[in-house]
Protein backbone atom coordinates (compact mmCIF):
# COMPACT_ATOMS: atom_id res chain seq x y z
CA UNK A 1 0.00 0.00 0.00
CA UNK A 2 1.40 3.38 -0.94
CA UNK A 3 1.01 6.09 1.65
CA UNK A 4 0.69 9.63 0.44
CA UNK A 5 3.09 11.88 2.23
CA UNK A 6 1.31 14.23 4.60
CA UNK A 7 3.70 16.91 5.88
CA UNK A 8 1.75 17.70 9.02
CA UNK A 9 2.32 14.22 10.25
CA UNK A 10 6.06 14.78 10.44
CA UNK A 11 5.93 15.12 14.18
CA UNK A 12 3.60 12.17 14.65
CA UNK A 13 6.53 9.90 13.93
CA UNK A 14 7.95 8.90 17.30
CA UNK A 15 11.49 9.87 16.48
CA UNK A 16 10.64 13.34 15.24
CA UNK A 17 8.37 13.84 18.20
CA UNK A 18 11.24 13.09 20.52
CA UNK A 19 13.40 15.74 18.85
CA UNK A 20 10.55 18.26 18.88
CA UNK A 21 10.02 17.77 22.60
CA UNK A 22 13.74 18.13 23.26
CA UNK A 23 13.63 21.50 21.53
CA UNK A 24 10.32 22.75 22.89
CA UNK A 25 10.30 21.78 26.55
CA UNK A 26 13.09 24.11 27.78
CA UNK A 27 11.31 27.05 26.16
CA UNK A 28 7.95 26.06 27.59
CA UNK A 29 9.34 25.58 31.08
CA UNK A 30 11.26 28.83 30.90
CA UNK A 31 8.17 30.66 29.68
CA UNK A 32 6.05 29.11 32.41
CA UNK A 33 8.47 30.20 35.12
CA UNK A 34 8.75 33.76 33.77
CA UNK A 35 4.97 34.13 33.41
CA UNK A 36 4.33 32.58 36.82
CA UNK A 37 6.76 34.93 38.56
CA UNK A 38 5.34 37.95 36.77
CA UNK A 39 1.79 36.74 37.39
CA UNK A 40 2.32 36.04 41.07
CA UNK A 41 3.99 39.42 41.55
CA UNK A 42 1.13 41.21 39.81
CA UNK A 43 -1.52 39.28 41.68
CA UNK A 44 0.01 39.79 45.11
CA UNK A 45 1.53 43.28 44.93
CA UNK A 46 -0.02 45.18 42.01
CA UNK A 47 -3.66 44.14 41.97
CA UNK A 48 -5.73 46.02 44.56
CA UNK A 49 -7.71 44.25 47.27
CA UNK A 50 -11.30 43.55 46.33
CA UNK A 51 -13.73 45.97 47.95
CA UNK A 52 -15.98 43.12 49.09
CA UNK A 53 -13.72 40.13 49.55
CA UNK A 54 -10.51 41.79 50.70
CA UNK A 55 -7.41 39.78 49.91
CA UNK A 56 -9.00 36.34 49.91
CA UNK A 57 -10.04 36.73 46.28
CA UNK A 58 -6.39 36.48 45.17
CA UNK A 59 -6.60 32.68 45.18
CA UNK A 60 -8.80 33.04 42.11
CA UNK A 61 -5.68 33.86 40.11
CA UNK A 62 -4.80 30.19 40.45
CA UNK A 63 -8.33 28.88 40.70
CA UNK A 64 -9.65 30.26 37.44
CA UNK A 65 -6.74 29.15 35.19
CA UNK A 66 -6.79 25.71 36.81
CA UNK A 67 -10.52 25.33 36.18
CA UNK A 68 -10.09 26.43 32.56
CA UNK A 69 -7.23 24.03 32.02
CA UNK A 70 -9.16 21.18 33.62
CA UNK A 71 -11.99 21.58 31.16
CA UNK A 72 -9.81 22.36 28.16
CA UNK A 73 -7.50 19.41 28.72
CA UNK A 74 -10.44 17.00 28.86
CA UNK A 75 -11.63 18.32 25.53
CA UNK A 76 -8.12 18.06 24.07
CA UNK A 77 -7.85 14.52 25.40
CA UNK A 78 -11.09 13.60 23.65
CA UNK A 79 -9.83 15.13 20.39
CA UNK A 80 -6.62 13.10 20.63
CA UNK A 81 -8.76 10.07 21.43
CA UNK A 82 -10.75 10.55 18.22
CA UNK A 83 -7.55 10.98 16.21
CA UNK A 84 -6.29 7.77 17.74
CA UNK A 85 -9.49 5.84 17.07
CA UNK A 86 -9.96 7.03 13.50
CA UNK A 87 -6.45 7.25 12.12
CA UNK A 88 -4.79 4.81 14.52
CA UNK A 89 -2.01 7.27 15.24
CA UNK A 90 -0.34 6.02 18.38
CA UNK A 91 1.23 9.29 19.28
CA UNK A 92 -2.23 10.84 19.63
CA UNK A 93 -3.02 8.22 22.22
CA UNK A 94 0.23 8.82 24.06
CA UNK A 95 -0.61 12.53 24.17
CA UNK A 96 -4.09 11.79 25.52
CA UNK A 97 -2.62 9.47 28.09
CA UNK A 98 -0.06 12.05 29.16
CA UNK A 99 -2.63 14.79 29.41
CA UNK A 100 -4.92 12.86 31.75
CA UNK A 101 -2.96 13.17 35.03
CA UNK A 102 -2.29 16.86 34.37
CA UNK A 103 -5.94 17.48 33.63
CA UNK A 104 -6.99 15.63 36.76
CA UNK A 105 -4.48 17.63 38.78
CA UNK A 106 -5.81 20.92 37.38
CA UNK A 107 -9.39 19.90 38.10
CA UNK A 108 -8.46 18.90 41.61
CA UNK A 109 -6.63 22.22 42.10
CA UNK A 110 -9.68 24.07 40.88
CA UNK A 111 -11.86 22.27 43.43
CA UNK A 112 -9.40 22.69 46.24
CA UNK A 113 -8.67 26.37 45.70
CA UNK A 114 -12.39 26.89 45.16
CA UNK A 115 -13.07 25.37 48.56
CA UNK A 116 -10.44 27.60 50.18
CA UNK A 117 -11.97 30.63 48.51
CA UNK A 118 -15.48 29.58 49.45
CA UNK A 119 -14.71 29.35 53.16
CA UNK A 120 -14.32 33.11 53.77
CA UNK A 121 -16.64 34.16 50.94
CA UNK A 122 -19.64 31.86 51.31
CA UNK A 123 -18.87 30.75 54.84
CA UNK A 124 -18.51 27.13 53.81
CA UNK A 125 -15.96 24.96 52.06
CA UNK A 126 -18.45 23.21 49.89
CA UNK A 127 -21.80 24.05 48.41
CA UNK A 128 -23.68 22.14 45.76
CA UNK A 129 -23.22 24.96 43.33
CA UNK A 130 -23.64 24.08 39.66
CA UNK A 131 -20.03 24.81 38.78
CA UNK A 132 -18.60 22.97 41.74
CA UNK A 133 -20.75 19.95 41.08
CA UNK A 134 -19.93 19.72 37.40
CA UNK A 135 -16.22 20.18 38.12
CA UNK A 136 -16.44 17.32 40.58
CA UNK A 137 -18.07 15.18 37.91
CA UNK A 138 -15.27 16.17 35.55
CA UNK A 139 -12.76 14.88 38.09
CA UNK A 140 -14.65 11.58 38.19
CA UNK A 141 -14.48 11.39 34.41
CA UNK A 142 -10.70 11.83 34.56
CA UNK A 143 -10.39 9.17 37.25
CA UNK A 144 -12.54 6.75 35.25
CA UNK A 145 -10.42 7.36 32.17
CA UNK A 146 -7.19 6.63 33.99
CA UNK A 147 -8.64 3.66 35.86
CA UNK A 148 -9.94 2.04 32.67
CA UNK A 149 -6.53 2.41 31.04
CA UNK A 150 -4.72 0.64 33.80
CA UNK A 151 -7.40 -2.04 34.17
CA UNK A 152 -7.14 -3.37 30.61
CA UNK A 153 -4.26 -5.79 30.22
CA UNK A 154 -3.48 -5.24 26.58
CA UNK A 155 -2.03 -1.79 26.15
CA UNK A 156 -3.42 -1.11 22.70
CA UNK A 157 -6.93 -2.30 23.63
CA UNK A 158 -6.81 -0.28 26.83
CA UNK A 159 -5.81 2.75 24.80
CA UNK A 160 -8.69 2.35 22.37
CA UNK A 161 -11.21 1.70 25.12
CA UNK A 162 -10.04 4.79 26.99
CA UNK A 163 -10.18 6.89 23.82
CA UNK A 164 -13.78 5.87 23.28
CA UNK A 165 -14.60 6.66 26.89
CA UNK A 166 -13.01 10.10 26.57
CA UNK A 167 -15.14 10.75 23.49
CA UNK A 168 -18.36 9.68 25.21
CA UNK A 169 -17.38 11.72 28.26
CA UNK A 170 -16.66 14.81 26.18
CA UNK A 171 -20.07 14.62 24.55
CA UNK A 172 -21.56 14.36 28.01
CA UNK A 173 -19.65 17.22 29.61
CA UNK A 174 -21.89 19.98 28.21
CA UNK A 175 -25.03 17.92 28.93
CA UNK A 176 -23.88 17.39 32.50
CA UNK A 177 -23.02 21.05 32.83
CA UNK A 178 -26.40 22.25 31.61
CA UNK A 179 -28.37 19.75 33.61
CA UNK A 180 -26.49 20.63 36.77
CA UNK A 181 -26.91 24.33 36.07
CA UNK A 182 -30.60 23.79 35.59
CA UNK A 183 -30.88 21.64 38.69
CA UNK A 184 -29.17 24.40 40.62
CA UNK A 185 -31.54 27.13 39.49
CA UNK A 186 -34.47 24.88 40.29
CA UNK A 187 -33.38 24.22 43.81
CA UNK A 188 -32.70 27.88 44.51
CA UNK A 189 -29.72 27.18 46.71
CA UNK A 190 -27.02 29.82 46.74
CA UNK A 191 -27.41 33.49 46.05
CA UNK A 192 -23.73 34.25 45.47
CA UNK A 193 -22.45 33.22 42.08
CA UNK A 194 -19.23 33.75 40.28
CA UNK A 195 -20.97 35.24 37.29
CA UNK A 196 -22.17 38.29 39.18
CA UNK A 197 -18.65 39.30 40.16
CA UNK A 198 -17.95 43.03 40.01
CA UNK A 199 -16.01 44.40 37.07
CA UNK A 200 -12.34 43.70 37.16
CA UNK A 201 -9.55 46.19 37.65
CA UNK A 202 -7.06 46.16 34.72
CA UNK A 203 -4.24 44.90 36.93
CA UNK A 204 -6.41 42.02 38.10
CA UNK A 205 -7.10 41.15 34.49
CA UNK A 206 -3.38 41.28 33.68
CA UNK A 207 -2.54 39.00 36.59
CA UNK A 208 -5.23 36.55 35.49
CA UNK A 209 -3.88 36.52 31.94
CA UNK A 210 -0.30 35.97 33.10
CA UNK A 211 -1.29 33.14 35.39
CA UNK A 212 -3.38 31.55 32.65
CA UNK A 213 -0.41 31.72 30.31
CA UNK A 214 1.82 30.14 32.95
CA UNK A 215 -0.68 27.33 33.44
CA UNK A 216 -0.87 26.68 29.70
CA UNK A 217 2.87 26.48 29.29
CA UNK A 218 3.28 24.32 32.37
CA UNK A 219 0.63 21.85 31.19
CA UNK A 220 2.08 21.73 27.69
CA UNK A 221 5.60 21.13 28.98
CA UNK A 222 4.65 18.44 31.45
CA UNK A 223 2.35 16.61 29.04
CA UNK A 224 4.92 16.68 26.24
CA UNK A 225 7.63 15.42 28.54
CA UNK A 226 5.42 12.62 29.81
CA UNK A 227 4.52 11.65 26.25
CA UNK A 228 8.20 11.66 25.34
CA UNK A 229 9.00 9.23 28.12
CA UNK A 230 6.14 7.06 26.93
CA UNK A 231 7.46 7.14 23.36
CA UNK A 232 10.94 6.13 24.44
CA UNK A 233 9.56 3.34 26.57
CA UNK A 234 7.40 1.92 23.82
CA UNK A 235 10.10 2.25 21.20
CA UNK A 236 12.83 0.91 23.43
CA UNK A 237 13.64 -1.92 21.03
CA UNK A 238 14.01 0.22 17.93
CA UNK A 239 17.23 1.24 16.31
CA UNK A 240 16.80 4.97 16.75
CA UNK A 241 16.36 4.72 20.50
CA UNK A 242 19.45 2.54 20.74
CA UNK A 243 21.40 5.07 18.69
CA UNK A 244 20.09 7.75 20.96
CA UNK A 245 21.29 5.94 24.05
CA UNK A 246 24.67 5.32 22.44
CA UNK A 247 25.28 8.72 20.87
CA UNK A 248 23.44 10.97 23.28
CA UNK A 249 21.12 13.68 22.11
CA UNK A 250 20.21 13.88 18.44
CA UNK A 251 18.56 16.95 17.06
CA UNK A 252 17.88 15.99 13.50
CA UNK A 253 14.60 14.72 12.34
CA UNK A 254 13.46 12.65 9.48
CA UNK A 255 11.56 14.91 7.13
CA UNK A 256 10.25 12.01 5.10
CA UNK A 257 8.07 10.63 7.86
CA UNK A 258 4.75 9.30 6.65
CA UNK A 259 1.46 8.32 8.13
CA UNK A 260 2.82 4.80 8.30
CA UNK A 261 5.50 6.00 10.69
CA UNK A 262 2.85 7.55 12.81
CA UNK A 263 0.93 4.31 12.94
CA UNK A 264 4.06 2.41 13.72
CA UNK A 265 3.45 -0.09 10.95
CA UNK A 266 6.77 0.11 9.14
CA UNK A 267 8.80 0.39 12.26
CA UNK A 268 9.47 -3.31 12.05
CA UNK A 269 12.28 -2.62 9.57
CA UNK A 270 14.21 -0.73 12.16
CA UNK A 271 13.76 -3.44 14.73
CA UNK A 272 16.75 -5.66 15.15
Amino acid sequence: MVFRRIPWLTFAAPRNFHVLVQVLVPWLVGGAVVLAVAGLYTSFFVAPPDYQQGNSYRILFIHVPAAWMGMFIYLLMAVYGVIHLVWRIRLADMMARSLAPTGALMTFMALWTGALWGAPTWGTYWVWDARLTSTLVLLFLYLGYMALRTAVDDRENGARAASLLALVGAINVPIIYFSVEWWHTLHQGMSVTLTSAPTMAPSMFTALLLMTGACWLYCAAIALRRAQVEVLEREAETQWVRDLIRDGDSRTWDRNATVADARGTIREEGRS
Partner: peptide
Protein backbone atom coordinates in the same frame (compact mmCIF):
# COMPACT_ATOMS: atom_id res chain seq x y z
CA UNK B 1 -21.28 1.57 26.71
CA UNK B 2 -19.55 1.04 30.04
CA UNK B 3 -20.45 -2.64 30.08
CA UNK B 4 -19.00 -3.13 26.61
CA UNK B 5 -15.78 -1.34 27.51
CA UNK B 6 -15.43 -3.41 30.68
CA UNK B 7 -15.44 -6.80 28.94
CA UNK B 8 -12.37 -8.75 29.89
CA UNK B 9 -11.37 -6.24 32.53
CA UNK B 10 -10.56 -7.83 35.85
CA UNK B 11 -11.47 -5.01 38.25
CA UNK B 12 -15.20 -5.30 37.70
CA UNK B 13 -17.92 -3.58 39.67
CA UNK B 14 -16.32 -0.53 41.28
CA UNK B 15 -14.70 0.60 38.03
CA UNK B 16 -17.99 0.16 36.22
CA UNK B 17 -19.61 2.50 38.74
CA UNK B 18 -16.84 5.05 38.22
CA UNK B 19 -17.28 4.95 34.45
CA UNK B 20 -21.04 4.87 34.28
CA UNK B 21 -22.42 6.90 37.17
CA UNK B 22 -21.07 10.27 35.95
CA UNK B 23 -22.92 9.63 32.69
CA UNK B 24 -26.11 8.93 34.63
CA UNK B 25 -26.15 12.32 36.32
CA UNK B 26 -28.17 14.32 33.76
CA UNK B 27 -30.86 11.64 33.59
CA UNK B 28 -31.01 11.48 37.36
CA UNK B 29 -31.38 15.23 37.70
CA UNK B 30 -34.08 15.58 35.07
Amino acid sequence: TGAALMLGVRAGGALMALLVLPLYIPVLII
